[in-house]
Design a protein around this nucleic acid. Structure first.
Lengths: 205, 205
DNA sequence: GTCTATAATTCGATAGAC
DNA sequence: GTCTATCGAATTATAGAC
């Protein structure tokens, strides 16, 4: 078995992937030119086609990576039988916000891809069959949380966690705040969103 | 002054605009070919350039229309001095959901545009100076609602109202529900989102 | 593996007939 | 106003030298 080179991340292949990841994620497939990727990677256009056969192949690799950012880890969180219902909400929000702080362009990319190529989304992963959902129904039956269509719960968790990243440029425009301020707002949300979700689920006396 | 033709909506110009609106809104500027627009409109490519000088000009028209869907009406709602703080929240949510039920592709389009061309967004419209925000601060000072960074309030209202439309294909994929079911979920949200926002703002005793 | 040069295709835009 | 035919620029992909 061949040993991986020590500097796998600085190999030419990785440089191209890094450039492609940046540009594709920010601008989408159609808006990016392979020339731009090559230039961003500091290499030649021909070399890009030498490593990856085509623009499509390279894009698919990046897409799978980005989808991973979105779905990887979620399955583990929602199916852990040792954590409580509310703890899972905290973990989910923290997971999304933490990951997206480092990859703020991923949400729009994934949402666009989901619309343009829904068949490429991981289908096996059915949130409705998760242990998290079982816990939700248990809480509802016990009268501990308000009954609602579980779709609302999922939309609310994701909407409150993910939307602010997808809408960052728009919100910064209508509010006029800096990148730094926006980041600290997002960090605040790690704590606030679970509290809000809790309030929404609270049974009124 | 010349009278408008009675069938303005079926004129060639309108047919082209309708086709462009559909394709640009669904796929974005770069992914759409002028040939596709012409074909969708049932006319020739040359005719498209006869009516609108270029792809860019046509796109700008569509973009302004779509931005209108998003911002038009919001300014009126948030600056009405006769409606209460909570009433405005109800009106905002209803406005977004109602409009987006008929234009479900607009949110992703606007979010993409806001990122790609932030300078083209209407800047004059500063939500922070609105009467709605004054009312929020009044409520906070009176101890009637929880204090929070007003950015969170805006993000939450928009996230809970708009995100489900931007994420529709993804959510349908992970939940496996039909278009019809999804629509009734959205209609439910007109009533539920304002209630949830209220819960989030409630001062705990 | 990496480059230069170029082939092959696509796409926006126009010329010119009707 | 509307069409066919085509130009010219841009872009993906490859051939071939080093």
């Amino acid at each position: 078995m061949k040993a991986k080179p020590l500097n796998a991340d600085s190999s030419t292949e990785e440089k191209i992937k890094a450039a492609a990841r940046k540009l594709f994620t920010q601008q989408g497939f159609a808006a990016v030119r392979t020339r731009d990727i090559a230039s961003e990677a500091g290499i030649n256009l021909a070399l890009l086609n030498y490593y990856f056969r085509s623009k499509e192949k390279l894009f698919e690799i990046i897409m799978l990576e980005n989808l991973g950012h979105f779905f990887q880890g979620v399955a583990i969180i929602v199916n852990d039988e040792k954590t409580s219902f509310y703890k899972k909400i905290e973990l989910l929000v923290d997971f999304y916000v933490t990951r997206l702080l480092n990859n703020p362009d991923v949400p729009l990319f994934v949402l666009n891809e989901a619309r343009n190529n829904p068949q490429k989304l991981p289908m096996q992963f059915n949130l409705m069959d998760s242990f998290f959902m079982k816990q939700f129904f248990t809480e509802v039956k016990a009268g501990k949380v308000k009954a609602m269509n579980p779709g609302h719960l999922l939309i609310n968790i994701m909407g409150l966690s993910i939307f602010p990243f997808a809408a960052k440029p728009m919100i910064q425009r209508v509010r006029g705040i800096s990148d730094k301020e926006y980041e600290s707002l997002m960090i605040e949300r790690k704590k606030l969103v679970p509290e809000w979700i809790k309030s929404m689920l609270e049974v009124k006396k």
